[in-house]
Nucleic acid binder design. Structure first.
Lengths: 334, 334
DNA sequence: CATATTTATGCACACGTTAACAATAGTCTT
DNA sequence: AAGACTATTGTTAACGTGTGCATAAATATG
């Protein structure tokens, strides 16, 4: 079996209480005693049993990192950056437990005993159920990527509506008036926000978008590809397409080139997210940058603060999005 | 505080032992008693304290999923598929703890008490340290993606050397003889394997590859881009380039088109991994498919089997790689 | 020098669960 | 009908750790 503080106690000729205090660097214990005990612990390669610690200290040392889904509609880049961001903050202090919300059949097992804090990377309003559950249990919680108003819940997200507005406005300012939209996955909040921002730009500049210029997508390459094929069948084709993420934009560009047309010569394309490959496709993709990694680091920092101060300060942090102009949009105004 | 089996016992008028047995569906307890207890547990919204369970049962309900690094050199797609694959297998039974090996300052905290099993997605020979540690502690372990010979360790990987051989051979069969190589990240086993396979193909067909035709990369877009720029400066440019992953291939294609040249008209490009975007770039990328998700599901299945049977069957599973021919290679033979 | 105070350590219990063993009542066997 | 057996439940200890309180020794106080 593994070595416990009692084993150390026996060797050091003290009680296990003293060992516990010594290893936790309690001021009650004499410095020499501490040192003697530390040496023995080291020699025996002692590791505390975290289950026992958790039981008595009422802390789990676990952080939950929950995504709306791991299997459908979450893009690899987004997922990766979110985990990276959180991981860079927590270092050694916590274990990071990654889970898809749609894998839960019941939230029953999510308790204050099993998670010291939880980060929900929320992509859908449907996540409200788990958010309410977590908040109801009094577990420190931060929700990323989607606005929530639940009391006591921290919230970090980017202003996607504004980003989409910038993208739409940019297309118009470049002289486009026949502008189509490939929407995000239905039920995803980001899909709604980006569409809203786009529509606001259209309204602001009084550009009419016919119904045939709006097609819902699934945030993946294939759906962007298919949607663009639809647009290409229209008698009056759009001169520009705003795609609600970069992957769909890439799919759309593929469809355009397969049809023997050019980006941006024949049709301009704008994406959203500024994924790593956006700068490297040909032509490079004009898109909206969303600070995913920053969102997740900020979220993690706030969560840890909240856990350690035990105070539940509610605060919403809205990070800016930014239009990144590259080569995939043609100016018609000159 | 939260409700415990003792609370239930009091209400049911039985001992807490009986409650424990009832909730674990022990055959020792009368069916009516069980049912009565279950109802009360339900009403009180009882959730077992897993730390207490862990302490006495000597199981943590945790599975570790360790990557060589989370911050440098692991591509998003790879990371995503690996987690997805493992997650799809473990469902509710375990918590999945994701970590970067390079985040560990000491492996001290990795014990049989804290992990029921561990999956190491290994990309570098440097991971041998943690593998030895885990195996030494007697924790069930499966290593993915890199061959290991440590006793008692399960191993699932794809035959990358063979894949690279196929890619190299294909280029030669298409009539290429000036073939360059953009290597993977130094220290990564995959980089070595892919290079080896490529070299074997060259040797097999007696094609000489000058030193200037080999440049080390970092597995990211930028390094592929830079490497290709180097090749373009050569007096005698290669007619084809084998890139050790798709991201570098995309970077390379970008450099080619920036130089005003065409893929595959002027230079052919082959990648490795068959990431999701490979089919959607223009021209679509000829590459080697590696069954990442299958590797991770197979690995997870074997690990669980090993944990539950408690037998440590050592076995290496080598999955096939496959050349996916698309448009990025030109045939010179016709 | 007697008492008060500080310092260092130990004792006993608690956290929530499971399990070996004991106990009780009812049933079967011959 | 006495002993053996079975079914059901309870008693108690254990897992490894932290902590309130008691204790003992050392030191300070007046």
């Amino acid at each position: 079996m593994s070595v416990t503080i009692k084993d150390i106690a026996k060797l050091a000729g003290v009680s296990h209480t003293t060992v516990s205090r010594a290893l936790n660097n309690s001021p009650l214990i004499q410095e020499e005693t501490k040192e003697r005990i530390r040496v023995i612990a080291e020699q025996l390669d002692y590791t505390p049993n975290y289950n026992a610690k958790s039981l008595v200290l009422d802390r789990s040392y676990n952080l939950g990192l929950f995504f709306t889904t791991l299997s459908k509609g979450t893009s690899a880049g987004f997922f990766y950056e979110a985990i990276r961001g959180v991981n860079s903050v927590i270092q050694d202090r916590y274990q990071l437990i990654v889970k898809g919300i749609d894998d839960y059949t019941s939230f029953h097992s999510i308790t204050r005993k099993s998670f010291d804090g939880i980060i929900v990377v929320s992509q859908s309003d449907d996540d409200q159920g788990i958010i309410d559950h977590i908040a109801g249990k009094g577990i420190p919680l931060v929700v990323l990527n989607r606005p929530v108003t639940t009391a006591g819940v921290l919230n970090v997200l980017s202003d996607e509506e504004q980003g989409a507005f910038l993208a739409g406005s940019y297309l118009i300012e470049q002289g486009h008036s026949r502008i189509a939209l490939i929407e995000g996955r239905q039920g995803f909040k980001s899909a709604q926000n980006r569409k809203d921002g786009f529509e606001r730009a259209m309204k602001h500049y009084q550009i009419r978008v016919p119904e045939a210029y709006r097609i819902p997508g699934l945030y993946d390459l294939e759906s962007g590809h298919k949607a663009m094929q639809q647009f290409l069948l229209l008698k009056e084709r759009p001169t520009a397409v705003f795609c609600c993420n970069d992957e769909m934009a890439l799919g759309a560009m593929k469809a355009i080139s397969e049809a023997g047309m050019q980006v941006p010569g024949d049709i301009s394309v704008v994406g959203f997210d500024d994924t790593v490959f956006a700068a490297y496709v040909t032509p490079s993709l004009t898109t909206v940058r969303r600070p995913i990694e920053q969102i997740s680091t900020e979220g993690a920092i706030r969560l840890l603060g909240n856990i350690e101060n035990k105070q539940h300060e509610t605060e919403q942090l809205l990070l800016k999005t930014e239009l990144i102009v590259r080569e995939s949009v043609r100016s018609l105004s000159s």
